[in-house]
Simulated scan of single mutants.
Amino acid sequence: MKYVSASDILPEQLLQEIQKYVQGRTIYIPSREDGRKKWGQLSGQRDYLRKRNLEIRQSFRKGIDVEQLSQSYCLAVETIRKIVYQKK
């Protein structure tokens, strides 16, 4: 995370008010809840895992057993079981 000087981005009046509470110390201002992205949305990892798990469930329904899926996707047998028996 890159730090930015508050004096560069905040109005003078707001800066003076903040200085009453936090003079010379570093503070973190979190993003608003409605502005946050869920895990994996920016990188595309969330979509990748959703598609992979869908493929695994479809293959399982077509008769490919858990051990074969485990080898094909390089995942533990227990992980494959969690995916195929997951309730939606």
Rank of each mutant, 00 (worst) to 15 (best):
M1Y: 01
M1I: 11
M1W: 03
M1E: 02
V4T: 12
V4Q: 03
S5T: 08
S5D: 12
A6W: 03
S7E: 13
S7K: 10
S7I: 10
S7A: 15
S7P: 02
D8W: 01
D8F: 03
D8S: 10
I9Q: 03
I9A: 04
L10P: 11
L10R: 06
P11K: 13
E12V: 03
Q16I: 01
Q16E: 13
Q16Y: 05
E17H: 14
E17R: 15
Q19V: 04
Q19C: 12
Q19I: 04
K20H: 14
K20V: 06
Y21L: 14
V22C: 12
V22H: 15
V22K: 14
V22M: 06
G24P: 11
R25D: 13
R25K: 15
T26C: 01
T26I: 06
T26L: 05
T26Q: 06
T26H: 06
I27T: 07
I27P: 03
I27M: 05
Y28M: 08
I29F: 08
I29N: 01
P30W: 02
P30Y: 06
P30N: 05
P30G: 11
S31C: 08
S31Q: 05
S31T: 08
R32N: 05
E33W: 00
E33H: 01
E33T: 10
E33I: 14
G35V: 00
G35A: 15
R36H: 00
R36I: 15
R36E: 12
R36Y: 06
K37E: 11
K37I: 14
K38C: 11
K38D: 12
K38F: 15
W39K: 13
W39T: 09
W39F: 15
W39Y: 12
G40W: 01
Q41E: 15
Q41C: 10
Q41H: 07
L42E: 10
S43F: 06
S43H: 03
G44P: 10
Q45R: 13
R46T: 06
D47K: 04
D47Y: 01
D47P: 02
Y48K: 01
Y48A: 01
Y48V: 00
L49V: 04
R50Q: 13
R50Y: 05
K51Q: 11
K51M: 07
K51A: 11
K51C: 00
K51T: 13
K51V: 11
N53I: 09
L54H: 12
L54K: 13
L54V: 05
L54F: 07
E55F: 02
E55P: 01
I56D: 11
I56P: 11
R57D: 01
R57W: 04
R57T: 07
R57M: 13
Q58K: 07
Q58A: 15
S59D: 07
S59T: 04
S59N: 11
S59L: 15
F60A: 04
F60L: 00
F60R: 01
K62V: 00
K62W: 00
G63S: 02
D65I: 08
D65N: 15
V66F: 03
V66Q: 05
E67C: 02
E67T: 11
Q68I: 14
Q68T: 14
Q68W: 04
Q68L: 14
L69D: 10
L69Q: 08
S70I: 12
Q71W: 00
Q71M: 08
Q71L: 14
C74G: 09
